[in-house]
Design a protein around this nucleic acid. Structure first.
Lengths: 249, 249
DNA sequence: AACTGACCATGATCTACATCAACAAAGCAG
DNA sequence: CTGCTTTGTTGATGTAGATCATGGTCAGTT
């Protein structure tokens, strides 16, 4: 995933120049996956102006927490993040993983407060969209509003599927479903659909799927024995997508 | 819940006149919970014009199904609905219950197709908002767009909480959480927070919470023995909100 | 190189809840 | 009212996956 992990001072300087003088979005490798796609050129320029491009977040570093107050939506530019919500007794649920081009923080709009925390899983960066600026711009660029609407709606349907997973699926089905969803998202981003690096720990996966870490560990082992995949630490190779698909239920 | 269940021909006639000649929204008992709240008067009139007020749906009747194609968003006007998504093998998950003033169908926007089904739990009616009209209107009334955005964001945060429930909570915690969420929603609508009719079956509740029907039945019995509530068929009386709250985890 | 703490794998045991079974109650059609 | 289907309750039993326990590996630090 990490596209900008090896950031050199030179690169930073270049990025800064780009931000100041050009339309950075247009040259971004994520352009076709991202918010600006399809906007008219002058609208794009306006959008580009309100975007703040972040420095890198290191593994474990929070983008926001349940305490911090809502200012911005974020789009992952490189790396990956997880979001979690906490019960009052400290148990928490990993509510999602976010990859380049995906929005983080959409559920905070309503209460104007983050109800979840977002944490970098590896060295990562984001584009920050100050929400008030975005709203202001949205008034004159309805297409932009629609695009944000679409993102919200998409996340909603992802979450509904996750409810099905959490409520009805067996451990095997859960893991198979999860791995294929990752595969699909890597593919969309131009990476291999069958071979990739897991940026999240077993424990994050387990938590997200409503399982124990041990169960996830055992499942990886069993899937490997069944020639469904090869797993070596965090490097995953999917060997039989069809059978994995059949396993999803 | 049912506010318009005893619809007489006279009433229907009145409603029709109102629709034709006045701004029906303004006189709707749901006004302060609903979409139009806070819109300028002439914007309200425009919105009012694109709303189609439905006849009654009977218990079990679908508002839309996973097959039907996307045309409209719906706001519950009276009664209640459940939404479900299905796995390929027929298992399904109740993804939500919807009460007057709440939006149904928001997750369909992105794919321009309903990915879930919505079914009336009792005699119910809706206001239909044809999505293309709504979008058109949204271009000239940005406040409207924002309101829809807010609804989406709210549903998103509800769904995230549900993930926590499904993934991490015990059966007791699940039911307590669920009952309190119902209580809160009834209260918002001006009904009693402690005494209400469950419009959904035990099996719908169980499904929604990721439990077996039998478990829900036993929990109701046990909660009753513990003086937390009294349940008589579908009539529920919450006797100790504080202790229920403590049970939520 | 040795130390530390997070992460991962795997076996042994336990338990919350599902499943199975049988019956009661309630809605509903004729 | 009578039979019939759906819905709900309660008890007995089973099991998927949690929990507990142990040891191994790897990345970062001193």
């Amino acid at each position: 995933m990490a596209q900008l992990n090896n950031v050199t001072p030179l690169f930073k300087e270049l990025a800064k120049m780009e931000h100041e003088h050009n339309i950075a979005c247009q040259d971004c490798s994520l352009f076709r996956l991202c918010l600006p796609l399809g906007l008219h050129n002058n609208d794009l320029i306006k959008l580009d102006k309100i975007i703040k491009r972040s420095q890198n977040y290191k593994r474990g570093q929070p983008l926001f927490t349940e305490k911090s107050n809502f200012t911005s939506l974020y789009v992952v530019r490189s790396g990956s993040f997880k979001t979690t919500i906490s019960a009052s007794d400290g148990r928490d649920q990993v509510t999602g993983f976010y990859f380049p081009g995906e929005f983080v923080g959409l559920d905070a709009i309503h209460e104007q407060a983050y109800l979840s925390s977002a944490v970098a899983l590896e060295t990562s960066s984001v584009c920050e969209l100050p929400f008030d600026h975005l709203q202001e711009l949205g008034k004159s660029v309805p297409e932009l509003q629609v695009k944000v609407l679409m993102r919200l709606s998409k996340e909603l349907s992802v979450d509904k599927s996750l409810m099905l997973l959490l409520g009805k699926k067996t451990a095997d089905e859960k893991l198979a479903t999860y791995l294929l969803s990752l595969s699909k998202r890597f593919k969309e981003r131009g990476f291999s659909a069958t071979e990739f690096q897991l940026s999240m720990s077993r424990s994050d996966i387990a938590n997200h799927l409503g399982l124990a870490v041990e169960t996830v560990s055992r499942l990886f082992s069993r899937f490997q024995e069944d020639d469904l995949l090869t797993i070596n630490g965090k490097l995953l190779l999917l060997r039989n997508i069809d059978r994995l698909n059949a396993l999803c239920g």
